[in-house]
Computed example of a mutant assay.
Amino acid sequence: MEHHNLPTEDLKTYGIINEDLTFSKKLSPDDVQKFLRGYTIVADNDRNRATFQLTDNNTQLKVIFLERDKSLSEILEQSKEKVQYTDIKNLSKSPDQWNIEMKAFIFDKENSKTVEFDFIKNATELTAIIADQKDLQELGRYKAELQKLKNYLYDKLDKYPEIAKEIANDMNIVSRELDAVTRISVEDKRMYNGNSDVKLNVNDRDMYEDVNRTRENEEQQQQEEKRRLRR
């Protein structure tokens, strides 16, 4: 392979390439080509995650270490029962690596595997999948996680003014999904209640007459208001 510009010693340190300068067999040819084009390699181990990316025309290796709030094995097992939400915090302190990642792990029954979704990168798709479950409780859990992420982003605006634009962009994405979830929740509740917040039994004469009287009173008040304005 062409390696004269690559940071070979760093790549060896993290096991991305071997001593003979061949890439690790854990990486497919497609993975290698993407990595050389700037894509990120992700390595998971229980609660820990590391990402590797070539920068500066492939002369530097950017390494970020992260930590989950739950172990990966626990997440994968519990995702078979219900959607799992997890935070991945950046362990570095540099300003350009401020962020927290929030993920959802959803079990794909058709393919018998758990799929990971990012709250920002996969926002629209994730909301659609959660909404498609037609589960108001799950929708509520998802909404709470979105609000938690929005609060976190809001807190970071003042701390990192140099990347405020990027943080604001992420906040806009989260706010959009929160609005969508709120709208879906209202629509689902209406469907659950029979598409109406008012349940009128037409066989209940008293109730029927009460509703009619209320409507007549409202119409009378409107007419009186119009006459008053014309004076």
Rank of each mutant, 00 (worst) to 15 (best):
L153K: 03
N195D: 13
L36T: 02
I106C: 08
M191I: 14
D170N: 15
R230A: 14
D132C: 08
I41P: 02
N5F: 15
A43I: 09
N57E: 13
I106E: 07
V63I: 03
T22I: 01
D155G: 14
D197H: 09
E19S: 08
I16G: 00
S175N: 09
N201S: 09
N58D: 06
E187G: 03
Q222N: 08
G194F: 05
G38Q: 06
S185I: 00
E162M: 10
K109L: 13
N169M: 11
E110K: 12
H3M: 07
L153T: 06
A123S: 03
K103V: 10
M102F: 11
E116N: 07
G194Y: 02
K150G: 08
F107P: 03
T13K: 15
N45E: 13
E110A: 12
D31W: 00
K156M: 15
I41H: 03
D170M: 14
Q97W: 11
Q220C: 07
Y192D: 09
L178T: 06
Y154W: 11
E77K: 15
K80W: 11
D31L: 00
Q78P: 09
E116P: 02
E67T: 08
H4M: 12
L21M: 06
R47K: 15
E125Q: 10
L146W: 02
K82F: 10
E110P: 04
E116T: 10
S24E: 02
S112H: 13
D170A: 15
A123H: 03
T214C: 11
F107G: 04
R215M: 15
D197I: 06
N193P: 03
K62I: 02
K199M: 05
S196P: 02
K134A: 12
D206S: 08
K159Q: 15
S94G: 07
L178S: 03
D10S: 07
Q84Y: 02
L200H: 01
Y85I: 00
T86Y: 04
N217V: 10
S94V: 07
I41W: 01
P95M: 05
D108G: 06
L153Q: 03
I130V: 12
Y14N: 01
V198I: 11
S24A: 05
L36D: 04
E2V: 06
A43W: 08
M171T: 05
Y192R: 03
K62W: 03
I167Y: 06
K150H: 14
Y154C: 11
S28P: 00
K156R: 13
D108F: 07
R228Y: 04
E9N: 12
R205L: 09
S24R: 03
D135R: 05
N203V: 01
D132S: 14
L21G: 02
E218W: 12
I64D: 00
S92A: 07
D108S: 08
